[in-house]
Simulated assay, not measured.
Amino acid sequence: MQKLTRIITLSVALTVVSGCSYVGVYKRDIPQGNLVTQEMVSQLQPGMTQEQVVYVMGRPLLEAPFDASQWDYVFRVDKAYGGVEQRRVTLAFDPQGRLANIEQEGDLSQALPIDVDSNMGPATEGSNPMLMQPDESTQNVAPISTQPASQL
């Protein structure tokens, strides 16, 4: 009888403990692809060259492997406690490499549900990464000596 009581108590305790670990799971939004906004798409005009489009939109996420006349810009956010939001802009170019057609999917006018920290991530194109280094006075790191170890 005592053995049965211990087994049932242990089973209930393990069930309760394993169930508690699910409550504290942290999830976060996962953005993927090209950042696509309505402001970017509104700058596109038919007749623009591919270089001009790259300047406005950046390099496309997908280029058709057998036909370089179609570029796809896809942005997808997998929301932690919700659904998936997807935006897609497909650009078609004529044989001379000029923008001919713009197709949009998704609501580009909505604000993006991502937090952007200006201090994190890669440096922006054209900026000097050495000027973006943290100030030495804010770091608690001893300076590195340039003298050989034999002279120290």
Results as ranks from 00 to 15, higher is better:
residue 32 Q to M: 11
residue 32 Q to L: 12
residue 34 N to I: 09
residue 34 N to P: 06
residue 35 L to R: 09
residue 35 L to T: 09
residue 36 V to L: 09
residue 36 V to G: 06
residue 36 V to E: 03
residue 37 T to N: 05
residue 38 Q to G: 13
residue 40 M to E: 07
residue 40 M to A: 13
residue 42 S to T: 14
residue 43 Q to A: 11
residue 43 Q to P: 03
residue 44 L to N: 01
residue 45 Q to H: 07
residue 45 Q to T: 11
residue 47 G to P: 00
residue 48 M to T: 01
residue 48 M to V: 01
residue 48 M to L: 01
residue 48 M to A: 01
residue 49 T to G: 02
residue 50 Q to G: 04
residue 50 Q to A: 06
residue 50 Q to F: 07
residue 51 E to F: 08
residue 51 E to G: 05
residue 51 E to H: 06
residue 51 E to Q: 03
residue 51 E to L: 05
residue 51 E to I: 06
residue 52 Q to H: 04
residue 52 Q to I: 04
residue 52 Q to D: 02
residue 52 Q to T: 03
residue 52 Q to L: 04
residue 53 V to K: 02
residue 53 V to A: 03
residue 54 V to K: 13
residue 55 Y to D: 13
residue 56 V to W: 01
residue 57 M to Y: 04
residue 57 M to V: 06
residue 57 M to L: 04
residue 60 P to H: 04
residue 61 L to H: 06
residue 62 L to Q: 03
residue 62 L to I: 11
residue 62 L to P: 00
residue 62 L to Y: 07
residue 63 E to N: 13
residue 63 E to A: 14
residue 64 A to S: 14
residue 65 P to G: 00
residue 65 P to L: 04
residue 66 F to E: 08
residue 68 A to Y: 07
residue 68 A to M: 08
residue 68 A to D: 05
residue 71 W to K: 00
residue 71 W to Y: 02
residue 71 W to L: 01
residue 73 Y to R: 05
residue 73 Y to D: 01
residue 76 R to H: 11
residue 77 V to D: 01
residue 78 D to S: 15
residue 78 D to F: 15
residue 80 A to E: 00
residue 80 A to R: 00
residue 80 A to M: 02
residue 81 Y to P: 01
residue 81 Y to A: 07
residue 83 G to F: 05
residue 83 G to Q: 03
residue 84 V to H: 02
residue 86 Q to A: 12
residue 87 R to Y: 11
residue 87 R to H: 10
residue 87 R to Q: 10
residue 88 R to F: 12
residue 90 T to S: 08
residue 90 T to L: 07
residue 90 T to F: 08
residue 91 L to D: 00
residue 91 L to W: 03
residue 93 F to E: 00
residue 93 F to P: 00
residue 93 F to T: 01
residue 94 D to N: 01
residue 95 P to A: 04
residue 96 Q to F: 08
residue 97 G to S: 03
residue 98 R to T: 05
residue 99 L to G: 05
residue 100 A to W: 05
residue 101 N to T: 14
residue 101 N to V: 15
residue 101 N to G: 09
residue 102 I to E: 00
residue 102 I to K: 02
residue 103 E to A: 13
residue 104 Q to C: 11
residue 104 Q to R: 10
residue 105 E to A: 15
residue 105 E to F: 15
residue 106 G to F: 06
residue 106 G to V: 05
residue 106 G to Q: 00
residue 106 G to Y: 03
residue 107 D to A: 15
residue 108 L to V: 05
residue 108 L to W: 05
residue 109 S to F: 14
residue 111 A to D: 12
residue 111 A to G: 15
residue 111 A to P: 10
residue 112 L to W: 07
residue 112 L to R: 05
residue 113 P to H: 12
residue 113 P to D: 09
residue 114 I to Y: 06
residue 115 D to M: 15
residue 115 D to T: 15
residue 115 D to W: 14
residue 115 D to C: 12
residue 116 V to E: 03
residue 116 V to T: 11
residue 116 V to L: 10
residue 116 V to M: 07
residue 117 D to A: 10
residue 117 D to E: 04
residue 117 D to F: 10
residue 118 S to C: 13
residue 118 S to F: 13
residue 119 N to F: 09
residue 119 N to A: 09
residue 120 M to K: 11
residue 120 M to F: 12
residue 122 P to N: 08
residue 122 P to R: 13
residue 123 A to N: 08
residue 125 E to Q: 10
